[in-house]
Design a protein around this nucleic acid. Structure first.
Lengths: 186, 186
DNA sequence: GGACGAGTGTAGCGGGTGCTACATTTGTAG
DNA sequence: CTACAAATGTAGCACCCGCTACACTCGTCC
Protein backbone atom coordinates (compact mmCIF):
# COMPACT_ATOMS: atom_id res chain seq x y z
CA UNK A 1 0.00 0.00 0.00
CA UNK A 2 1.39 3.36 -1.00
CA UNK A 3 2.17 5.94 1.61
CA UNK A 4 -0.58 8.07 0.21
CA UNK A 5 -3.20 5.34 0.54
CA UNK A 6 -2.01 4.63 4.06
CA UNK A 7 -2.37 8.27 5.02
CA UNK A 8 -5.81 8.36 3.42
CA UNK A 9 -6.98 5.42 5.53
CA UNK A 10 -5.57 6.86 8.74
CA UNK A 11 -6.96 10.31 8.00
CA UNK A 12 -10.36 8.78 7.32
CA UNK A 13 -10.27 7.03 10.69
CA UNK A 14 -9.40 10.28 12.37
CA UNK A 15 -12.15 12.21 10.60
CA UNK A 16 -14.70 9.52 11.40
CA UNK A 17 -13.84 9.91 15.06
CA UNK A 18 -13.49 13.66 15.39
CA UNK A 19 -15.83 14.93 12.73
CA UNK A 20 -15.36 16.56 9.39
CA UNK A 21 -16.51 20.08 10.10
CA UNK A 22 -13.71 21.44 12.26
CA UNK A 23 -11.07 19.39 10.48
CA UNK A 24 -7.78 21.21 9.88
CA UNK A 25 -4.47 20.06 8.58
CA UNK A 26 -2.07 20.63 11.46
CA UNK A 27 -3.96 18.77 14.20
CA UNK A 28 -4.84 16.00 11.76
CA UNK A 29 -1.23 15.65 10.69
CA UNK A 30 -0.05 15.63 14.29
CA UNK A 31 -2.51 12.85 15.13
CA UNK A 32 -1.18 10.79 12.22
CA UNK A 33 2.42 11.38 13.21
CA UNK A 34 3.24 13.49 10.19
CA UNK A 35 3.10 17.14 9.17
CA UNK A 36 0.67 19.33 7.31
CA UNK A 37 3.48 19.74 4.81
CA UNK A 38 3.32 16.04 3.98
CA UNK A 39 -0.46 15.92 3.70
CA UNK A 40 -0.31 18.72 1.16
CA UNK A 41 2.55 16.96 -0.58
CA UNK A 42 0.54 13.78 -1.02
CA UNK A 43 -2.91 15.23 -1.64
CA UNK A 44 -2.13 18.59 -3.16
CA UNK A 45 -4.93 20.47 -1.45
CA UNK A 46 -7.05 20.21 1.65
CA UNK A 47 -10.11 19.91 -0.57
CA UNK A 48 -8.57 16.95 -2.38
CA UNK A 49 -7.74 15.34 0.93
CA UNK A 50 -11.31 15.76 2.14
CA UNK A 51 -12.73 14.42 -1.11
CA UNK A 52 -10.51 11.37 -0.71
CA UNK A 53 -11.61 10.87 2.90
CA UNK A 54 -15.24 10.96 1.90
CA UNK A 55 -14.72 8.46 -0.88
CA UNK A 56 -12.85 6.08 1.41
CA UNK A 57 -15.57 6.33 4.02
CA UNK A 58 -18.31 5.81 1.46
CA UNK A 59 -16.51 2.82 -0.02
CA UNK A 60 -16.50 1.22 3.41
CA UNK A 61 -20.24 1.79 3.84
CA UNK A 62 -21.03 0.43 0.41
CA UNK A 63 -18.81 -2.60 0.93
CA UNK A 64 -20.62 -3.39 4.16
CA UNK A 65 -24.01 -3.28 2.47
CA UNK A 66 -22.86 -5.31 -0.51
CA UNK A 67 -21.51 -7.93 1.88
CA UNK A 68 -24.99 -8.58 3.26
CA UNK A 69 -26.59 -11.92 2.45
CA UNK A 70 -29.85 -11.44 0.54
CA UNK A 71 -32.84 -11.90 2.83
CA UNK A 72 -35.95 -14.00 2.30
CA UNK A 73 -38.30 -11.05 2.14
CA UNK A 74 -38.37 -7.26 2.22
CA UNK A 75 -38.98 -6.90 5.91
CA UNK A 76 -35.99 -9.02 6.76
CA UNK A 77 -33.93 -7.20 4.18
CA UNK A 78 -34.79 -3.83 5.70
CA UNK A 79 -34.15 -5.09 9.19
CA UNK A 80 -30.78 -6.47 8.12
CA UNK A 81 -29.94 -3.11 6.60
CA UNK A 82 -30.96 -1.36 9.79
CA UNK A 83 -28.86 -3.70 11.88
CA UNK A 84 -25.84 -3.20 9.62
CA UNK A 85 -26.27 0.54 9.69
CA UNK A 86 -26.29 0.51 13.46
CA UNK A 87 -22.86 -1.00 13.57
CA UNK A 88 -20.53 1.40 15.33
CA UNK A 89 -18.34 1.73 12.26
CA UNK A 90 -21.10 2.19 9.71
CA UNK A 91 -22.85 4.69 11.92
CA UNK A 92 -19.70 6.79 11.96
CA UNK A 93 -19.50 6.70 8.19
CA UNK A 94 -23.10 7.79 7.94
CA UNK A 95 -22.52 10.54 10.45
CA UNK A 96 -19.63 11.91 8.44
CA UNK A 97 -21.72 11.68 5.29
CA UNK A 98 -24.33 13.80 7.00
CA UNK A 99 -21.70 16.35 7.91
CA UNK A 100 -20.51 16.46 4.33
CA UNK A 101 -24.05 16.81 3.04
CA UNK A 102 -24.64 19.70 5.42
CA UNK A 103 -21.42 21.34 4.25
CA UNK A 104 -22.61 20.93 0.69
CA UNK A 105 -26.10 22.26 1.40
CA UNK A 106 -25.20 25.67 0.05
CA UNK A 107 -23.27 24.28 -2.90
CA UNK A 108 -19.85 24.51 -1.30
CA UNK A 109 -17.24 22.45 -3.08
CA UNK A 110 -15.85 19.85 -2.99
CA UNK A 111 -18.56 18.65 -0.62
CA UNK A 112 -21.56 19.08 -2.92
CA UNK A 113 -19.99 17.10 -5.75
CA UNK A 114 -18.56 14.29 -3.65
CA UNK A 115 -21.78 13.90 -1.71
CA UNK A 116 -23.73 13.63 -4.95
CA UNK A 117 -21.43 10.86 -6.19
CA UNK A 118 -21.39 9.06 -2.86
CA UNK A 119 -25.15 9.17 -2.52
CA UNK A 120 -25.65 7.69 -5.96
CA UNK A 121 -23.38 4.73 -5.22
CA UNK A 122 -24.87 4.19 -1.80
CA UNK A 123 -28.46 4.28 -3.05
CA UNK A 124 -27.49 1.77 -5.71
CA UNK A 125 -26.05 -0.63 -3.17
CA UNK A 126 -29.11 -0.48 -0.92
CA UNK A 127 -31.50 -0.91 -3.85
CA UNK A 128 -29.48 -3.89 -5.06
CA UNK A 129 -29.83 -5.50 -1.66
CA UNK A 130 -33.60 -5.13 -1.82
CA UNK A 131 -33.64 -6.53 -5.34
CA UNK A 132 -31.51 -9.48 -4.26
CA UNK A 133 -34.06 -10.03 -1.51
CA UNK A 134 -36.86 -10.42 -4.01
CA UNK A 135 -38.14 -6.91 -4.59
CA UNK A 136 -38.95 -5.77 -8.12
CA UNK A 137 -36.40 -3.25 -9.32
CA UNK A 138 -38.76 -0.31 -9.81
CA UNK A 139 -40.27 -0.91 -6.37
CA UNK A 140 -36.85 -1.29 -4.83
CA UNK A 141 -35.81 2.14 -6.07
CA UNK A 142 -38.86 3.76 -4.54
CA UNK A 143 -38.47 1.87 -1.30
CA UNK A 144 -34.81 2.81 -1.10
CA UNK A 145 -35.58 6.50 -1.51
CA UNK A 146 -37.96 6.36 1.43
CA UNK A 147 -35.68 4.20 3.52
CA UNK A 148 -32.63 6.31 2.94
CA UNK A 149 -34.39 9.59 3.65
CA UNK A 150 -35.82 8.32 6.92
CA UNK A 151 -32.58 6.72 7.98
CA UNK A 152 -30.60 9.87 7.30
CA UNK A 153 -33.11 11.89 9.28
CA UNK A 154 -32.89 9.49 12.20
CA UNK A 155 -29.12 9.71 12.07
CA UNK A 156 -29.32 13.47 12.40
CA UNK A 157 -31.55 13.23 15.46
CA UNK A 158 -29.45 10.55 17.08
CA UNK A 159 -27.61 12.79 19.56
CA UNK A 160 -30.96 14.10 20.75
CA UNK A 161 -32.78 12.46 23.64
CA UNK A 162 -31.68 8.94 24.29
CA UNK A 163 -31.03 8.11 20.68
CA UNK A 164 -31.40 4.61 19.31
CA UNK A 165 -33.54 2.95 21.99
CA UNK A 166 -36.22 5.57 21.64
CA UNK A 167 -36.16 5.14 17.87
CA UNK A 168 -37.22 1.50 17.96
CA UNK A 169 -40.88 2.22 17.35
CA UNK A 170 -40.01 4.57 14.51
CA UNK A 171 -37.87 1.88 12.94
CA UNK A 172 -40.72 -0.62 13.19
CA UNK A 173 -43.00 1.85 11.48
CA UNK A 174 -40.35 2.48 8.87
CA UNK A 175 -39.94 -1.23 8.15
CA UNK A 176 -43.68 -1.49 7.62
CA UNK A 177 -43.69 1.53 5.34
CA UNK A 178 -40.80 0.31 3.23
CA UNK A 179 -42.29 -3.14 3.00
CA UNK A 180 -45.58 -1.65 1.86
CA UNK A 181 -43.86 0.27 -0.92
CA UNK A 182 -41.72 -2.69 -1.92
CA UNK A 183 -44.60 -5.14 -2.07
CA UNK A 184 -46.74 -2.74 -4.03
CA UNK A 185 -49.72 -3.06 -1.74
CA UNK A 186 -50.24 0.65 -2.26
CA UNK B 1 -38.27 46.59 18.87
CA UNK B 2 -34.93 46.85 20.61
CA UNK B 3 -31.77 47.28 18.60
CA UNK B 4 -30.72 43.84 19.74
CA UNK B 5 -33.91 42.18 18.51
CA UNK B 6 -33.61 44.02 15.23
CA UNK B 7 -30.04 42.78 14.76
CA UNK B 8 -31.15 39.26 15.67
CA UNK B 9 -33.80 39.29 12.95
CA UNK B 10 -31.46 40.69 10.33
CA UNK B 11 -28.69 38.30 11.29
CA UNK B 12 -31.12 35.41 11.06
CA UNK B 13 -32.11 36.48 7.56
CA UNK B 14 -28.46 36.62 6.58
CA UNK B 15 -27.68 33.20 8.05
CA UNK B 16 -30.72 31.68 6.37
CA UNK B 17 -29.43 32.92 3.05
CA UNK B 18 -25.72 32.24 3.36
CA UNK B 19 -25.62 29.27 5.67
CA UNK B 20 -24.62 28.77 9.25
CA UNK B 21 -21.43 26.80 8.86
CA UNK B 22 -19.02 29.37 7.50
CA UNK B 23 -20.64 32.20 9.43
CA UNK B 24 -18.20 34.70 10.92
CA UNK B 25 -18.70 37.98 12.65
CA UNK B 26 -16.98 40.49 10.40
CA UNK B 27 -18.70 39.65 7.11
CA UNK B 28 -22.01 39.24 8.90
CA UNK B 29 -21.64 42.61 10.59
CA UNK B 30 -20.66 44.26 7.31
CA UNK B 31 -23.75 42.83 5.63
CA UNK B 32 -25.93 44.26 8.40
CA UNK B 33 -24.27 47.66 8.21
CA UNK B 34 -22.65 47.39 11.60
CA UNK B 35 -19.41 46.08 13.11
CA UNK B 36 -18.32 42.87 14.77
CA UNK B 37 -17.70 45.06 17.78
CA UNK B 38 -21.41 45.86 18.02
CA UNK B 39 -22.55 42.26 17.55
CA UNK B 40 -20.37 41.23 20.44
CA UNK B 41 -21.65 44.19 22.44
CA UNK B 42 -25.26 43.13 22.00
CA UNK B 43 -24.88 39.35 22.14
CA UNK B 44 -21.79 38.93 24.27
CA UNK B 45 -20.40 35.99 22.36
CA UNK B 46 -20.58 34.49 18.91
CA UNK B 47 -22.07 31.36 20.44
CA UNK B 48 -24.83 33.40 22.05
CA UNK B 49 -25.49 35.12 18.74
CA UNK B 50 -25.77 31.78 16.96
CA UNK B 51 -28.03 30.35 19.62
CA UNK B 52 -30.28 33.35 19.20
CA UNK B 53 -30.33 32.98 15.41
CA UNK B 54 -31.35 29.37 15.68
CA UNK B 55 -34.14 30.18 18.10
CA UNK B 56 -35.47 32.95 15.89
CA UNK B 57 -35.41 30.67 12.86
CA UNK B 58 -37.10 27.84 14.73
CA UNK B 59 -39.76 30.17 16.08
CA UNK B 60 -40.59 31.14 12.51
CA UNK B 61 -40.92 27.49 11.45
CA UNK B 62 -43.09 26.62 14.40
CA UNK B 63 -45.30 29.65 13.90
CA UNK B 64 -45.85 28.64 10.27
CA UNK B 65 -46.94 25.13 11.28
CA UNK B 66 -49.17 26.36 14.08
CA UNK B 67 -50.84 28.74 11.64
CA UNK B 68 -52.08 25.82 9.52
CA UNK B 69 -55.79 25.15 9.50
CA UNK B 70 -56.52 21.64 10.78
CA UNK B 71 -57.26 19.26 7.92
CA UNK B 72 -60.14 16.84 7.50
CA UNK B 73 -57.97 13.75 7.64
CA UNK B 74 -54.38 12.62 8.11
CA UNK B 75 -53.47 12.50 4.46
CA UNK B 76 -54.55 16.05 3.91
CA UNK B 77 -52.82 17.10 7.11
CA UNK B 78 -49.55 15.56 5.95
CA UNK B 79 -49.90 17.05 2.49
CA UNK B 80 -50.56 20.47 4.01
CA UNK B 81 -47.47 20.08 6.14
CA UNK B 82 -45.44 19.10 3.11
CA UNK B 83 -46.71 22.06 1.14
CA UNK B 84 -45.93 24.44 4.01
CA UNK B 85 -42.46 22.98 4.42
CA UNK B 86 -41.78 23.53 0.75
CA UNK B 87 -42.31 27.23 1.11
CA UNK B 88 -39.10 29.01 0.21
CA UNK B 89 -38.85 30.54 3.68
CA UNK B 90 -39.61 27.41 5.65
CA UNK B 91 -37.23 25.38 3.54
CA UNK B 92 -34.44 27.77 4.44
CA UNK B 93 -35.23 27.45 8.11
CA UNK B 94 -35.15 23.69 7.83
CA UNK B 95 -31.90 23.84 5.92
CA UNK B 96 -30.28 25.90 8.64
CA UNK B 97 -31.64 23.51 11.24
CA UNK B 98 -29.93 20.68 9.40
CA UNK B 99 -26.68 22.61 9.41
CA UNK B 100 -26.99 23.19 13.13
CA UNK B 101 -27.78 19.53 13.74
CA UNK B 102 -24.71 18.52 11.76
CA UNK B 103 -22.59 20.95 13.76
CA UNK B 104 -23.98 19.40 16.92
CA UNK B 105 -23.44 15.81 15.74
CA UNK B 106 -20.24 15.53 17.75
CA UNK B 107 -21.65 17.31 20.77
CA UNK B 108 -20.29 20.72 19.90
CA UNK B 109 -21.94 23.51 21.83
CA UNK B 110 -24.04 25.56 21.62
CA UNK B 111 -25.38 23.67 18.63
CA UNK B 112 -26.19 20.38 20.34
CA UNK B 113 -28.22 21.99 23.08
CA UNK B 114 -30.11 24.47 20.92
CA UNK B 115 -30.90 21.80 18.34
CA UNK B 116 -32.29 19.56 21.05
CA UNK B 117 -34.58 22.32 22.30
CA UNK B 118 -35.62 23.36 18.80
CA UNK B 119 -36.40 19.81 17.75
CA UNK B 120 -38.60 19.24 20.77
CA UNK B 121 -40.68 22.34 20.06
CA UNK B 122 -40.89 21.59 16.34
CA UNK B 123 -41.98 17.98 16.88
CA UNK B 124 -44.61 19.21 19.28
CA UNK B 125 -46.03 21.63 16.73
CA UNK B 126 -46.21 19.01 13.98
CA UNK B 127 -47.79 16.45 16.28
CA UNK B 128 -50.36 19.01 17.40
CA UNK B 129 -51.30 19.65 13.81
CA UNK B 130 -51.93 15.95 13.28
CA UNK B 131 -53.96 15.76 16.47
CA UNK B 132 -56.00 18.78 15.41
CA UNK B 133 -56.64 16.94 12.17
CA UNK B 134 -58.19 14.03 13.99
CA UNK B 135 -55.30 11.73 14.80
CA UNK B 136 -55.10 10.10 18.22
CA UNK B 137 -52.30 11.64 20.27
CA UNK B 138 -50.21 8.49 20.70
CA UNK B 139 -50.49 7.73 16.98
CA UNK B 140 -49.67 11.33 16.12
CA UNK B 141 -46.42 11.16 18.04
CA UNK B 142 -45.33 8.04 16.18
CA UNK B 143 -46.41 9.44 12.84
CA UNK B 144 -44.56 12.67 13.52
CA UNK B 145 -41.35 10.83 14.31
CA UNK B 146 -41.49 9.06 10.96
CA UNK B 147 -42.57 12.13 9.05
CA UNK B 148 -39.91 14.35 10.56
CA UNK B 149 -37.11 11.86 10.00
CA UNK B 150 -38.03 11.34 6.37
CA UNK B 151 -38.52 15.02 5.74
CA UNK B 152 -35.18 15.92 7.25
CA UNK B 153 -33.51 13.27 5.14
CA UNK B 154 -35.15 14.57 1.99
CA UNK B 155 -34.01 18.06 2.89
CA UNK B 156 -30.45 16.85 3.11
CA UNK B 157 -30.64 15.26 -0.32
CA UNK B 158 -32.32 18.26 -1.88
CA UNK B 159 -29.25 19.73 -3.58
CA UNK B 160 -28.63 16.37 -5.22
CA UNK B 161 -30.09 15.51 -8.58
CA UNK B 162 -32.99 17.73 -9.57
CA UNK B 163 -34.34 18.08 -6.07
CA UNK B 164 -38.00 18.46 -5.31
CA UNK B 165 -39.60 17.29 -8.59
CA UNK B 166 -37.83 13.96 -8.39
CA UNK B 167 -38.97 13.55 -4.80
CA UNK B 168 -42.68 13.59 -5.63
CA UNK B 169 -43.03 9.81 -5.65
CA UNK B 170 -41.15 9.56 -2.37
CA UNK B 171 -43.45 12.11 -0.83
CA UNK B 172 -46.50 10.15 -2.02
CA UNK B 173 -45.07 7.03 -0.43
CA UNK B 174 -44.30 8.99 2.72
CA UNK B 175 -47.85 10.32 2.94
CA UNK B 176 -49.16 6.77 2.68
CA UNK B 177 -46.75 5.57 5.35
CA UNK B 178 -47.58 8.35 7.78
CA UNK B 179 -51.29 7.87 7.19
CA UNK B 180 -50.91 4.16 7.88
CA UNK B 181 -49.21 4.83 11.19
CA UNK B 182 -51.66 7.55 12.14
CA UNK B 183 -54.74 5.49 11.36
CA UNK B 184 -53.40 2.51 13.23
CA UNK B 185 -53.99 0.10 10.41
CA UNK B 186 -50.68 -1.50 11.42
C1' DG C 1 -23.46 72.28 34.13
C1' DG C 2 -21.68 68.01 35.48
C1' DA C 3 -21.80 63.15 36.26
C1' DC C 4 -22.82 59.01 34.36
C1' DG C 5 -24.00 55.08 31.59
C1' DA C 6 -25.34 53.24 27.08
C1' DG C 7 -23.67 52.94 22.47
C1' DT C 8 -19.98 53.03 19.07
C1' DG C 9 -15.46 53.62 16.30
C1' DT C 10 -10.48 52.31 15.98
C1' DA C 11 -6.93 49.53 16.59
C1' DG C 12 -4.90 45.53 17.79
C1' DC C 13 -3.78 41.04 20.28
C1' DG C 14 -2.98 36.17 20.15
C1' DG C 15 -3.81 32.39 17.66
C1' DG C 16 -5.33 29.40 13.92
C1' DT C 17 -5.70 28.64 8.77
C1' DG C 18 -4.19 26.76 4.05
C1' DC C 19 -0.31 26.91 1.62
C1' DT C 20 4.64 27.76 -0.09
C1' DA C 21 9.83 28.56 -0.54
C1' DC C 22 13.92 26.58 0.35
C1' DA C 23 17.05 23.43 1.96
C1' DT C 24 17.97 18.91 3.14
C1' DT C 25 17.87 13.95 3.51
C1' DT C 26 17.17 9.51 1.49
C1' DG C 27 16.86 5.95 -1.83
C1' DT C 28 17.97 4.32 -6.27
C1' DA C 29 19.80 3.86 -10.95
C1' DG C 30 23.77 4.54 -14.14
C1' DC D 1 30.66 7.44 -6.80
C1' DT D 2 27.65 10.32 -8.91
C1' DA D 3 23.38 12.12 -10.34
C1' DC D 4 18.91 12.72 -9.91
C1' DA D 5 14.19 12.30 -8.11
C1' DA D 6 11.19 11.37 -4.33
C1' DA D 7 10.36 12.48 0.39
C1' DT D 8 10.66 15.41 4.30
C1' DG D 9 11.94 19.24 7.86
C1' DT D 10 11.93 24.26 8.96
C1' DA D 11 10.31 28.59 8.61
C1' DG D 12 7.27 31.69 7.35
C1' DC D 13 3.68 34.35 4.55
C1' DA D 14 -0.79 36.43 4.20
C1' DC D 15 -5.02 36.13 5.92
C1' DC D 16 -8.89 35.28 8.91
C1' DC D 17 -10.80 34.42 13.46
C1' DG D 18 -13.16 35.73 18.12
C1' DC D 19 -12.49 38.98 21.24
C1' DT D 20 -10.82 43.18 23.94
C1' DA D 21 -8.73 47.77 25.49
C1' DC D 22 -9.36 52.42 25.07
C1' DA D 23 -11.21 56.54 23.79
C1' DC D 24 -15.00 59.03 22.41
C1' DT D 25 -19.86 60.76 21.65
C1' DC D 26 -24.15 61.20 23.07
C1' DG D 27 -28.63 61.58 25.79
C1' DT D 28 -30.48 61.80 30.45
C1' DC D 29 -30.99 62.84 35.24
C1' DC D 30 -29.59 65.51 39.41
Amino acid sequence: MSKRDDLAEQATDHALEHGLIGLSLRPLAAALGTSDRMLLYHFGTKDDLVATLLRVSNDRSVAAVRALTPARDVRRAVRDLWRAMNTESLQRCQRMYVEAAALGLFGREPYATVVREANEVWIGAVADHLVASGVRRSRAVRATALLDAAYTGLMLDLPLDEGVPQQRQTVRDLVDAVAAVAQGSA
